[in-house]
Design a protein around this nucleic acid. Structure first.
Lengths: 217, 217
DNA sequence: ACATTAAAATACGTAGCAGTATGAAATTAT
DNA sequence: ATAATTTCATACTGCTACGTATTTTAATGT
């Protein structure tokens, strides 16, 4: 960890900029996948030497975990905020829609979601990276459940739909939208698909919902 | 390609069983991902030598393409059949639901969908594998569109929803369900989420659908 | 000035991978 | 029996990867 604010320390001063490497790492893993780019390649792209990266992040697992965590706390932060802000349900849905439908290509951002691809990866990931991904997944799902429960208690959400089901559904639709965007579906078509998915929450459809969910409980 | 039905040929008789290798390859790529298992590892699992595999499939791209094609024509064939069988829409939906909700773990099948993960892969795939995946994707989407158009013409499908939007939506929901199953969501919860997704096609919801889709066109 | 400390960069060690050269083995043709 | 042919398995080449040993460099302390 950088200690550049304290006393000037003793040995040769550092030149490796942690933030720069981390930024390149997030971008690389986001674009090419966590298993699609090597440390060597990231070093090349960042213009730093390999031992420097190892000194800073320990090993590959450490770098991937740091990159994923940075992605979560920057790119995905708006999403977490929407869930905790306690807005009226329809307003939250609107904000959620804006976030999901953001034209990432036009903003120079990579397509897809690093968090989702990490969770879905079947390949060997380090322990720290895996745990970081799953912890965030669980937190997001909990956030969605609490958000939906609050909406239910305010009469803004169909109580016929089990909370966990709705949370899993919303989570999946968000991931789907990012996936479609990555596949090159037009923004217009993406908007149609996502809004179609959200219609399940809108109209009063007690008869049909009851019919589907009564058999469970 | 095996020529075991003709004359006995000239040289040393083959012992390498193409079908056996292909079966192990499908299973391996399906379980571990197209980039998550090497040819060496597949040879170990199949108990065959590497030059044998190269003689039979050419190169890695050839093996992956053959495995993907076998997966498409066996595992995913029931899906294609449902779309072309021209059943009443609700009956087709029921068959589709049965296919999607099949408990693959209980049947000893790997989780997830090789076709979907191949299309989503950001890593370098061979030309033949990539083309095979995209061709199948396009065909499936076309099949879905024709299926939906037929249902519309029979008055069994809400004409307010653009055909392509509905096709993309169904395709995505199928992929999502397989993804959730792979993530370990219970079969009950999976059923709830998938059936919730399908409710967008059921009840007459002209007002809300018109409101959403009128702004496009 | 000189020792000490810590970070820098080069170069290395080991392992796994895609793909192939090579010689042995098993068959048919003469 | 011997030549020809085809497949087999071992061993090899070249490459890239993760991680580290080693030496050089730039600073501080005495």
């Amino acid at each position: 960890m950088s200690n550049n604010t304290d006393k000037p320390a003793r040995g040769r001063p550092r030149t490796l900029q942690r933030e720069h490497v981390l930024k390149i790492a997030v971008e690389s893993y986001w674009t090419d996948g966590l298993t699609g780019v090597s440390i060597e390649e990231i070093c090349r792209r960042a213009g730093v030497s390999k031992p420097g990266v190892y000194r800073e992040f320990g090993n590959e697992d450490g770098l991937k975990q740091a990159a994923l965590e940075r992605y979560q706390s920057t790119i995905l932060a708006p999403l977490a905020d929407i869930l905790t802000d306690d807005l009226p349900f329809e307003q939250a849905l609107r904000k959620l829609t804006d976030f999901v439908l953001l034209d990432r290509k036009a903003h120079g951002l990579p397509a897809g979601c690093l968090q989702v691809t990490t969770c879905r990866s079947k390949q060997t990931l380090g322990k720290r990276t895996r745990e970081s991904a799953h912890k965030f997944s669980d937190q997001t799902l909990m956030g969605l459940e609490q958000w939906i429960d609050r909406a239910k208690s305010k009469g803004q959400f169909a109580v016929e739909i089990p909370t966990r089901t709705a949370a899993l559904y919303v989570d999946a639709q968000i991931a789907t939208a990012m996936e479609l965007q990555q596949q090159g579906v037009t923004q217009k078509e993406l908007e149609r698909v996502f809004k179609l998915a959200l219609t399940v929450f809108f109209e009063k459809r007690r008869p049909i919902l009851d019919q589907i969910f009564s058999e469970f409980v």
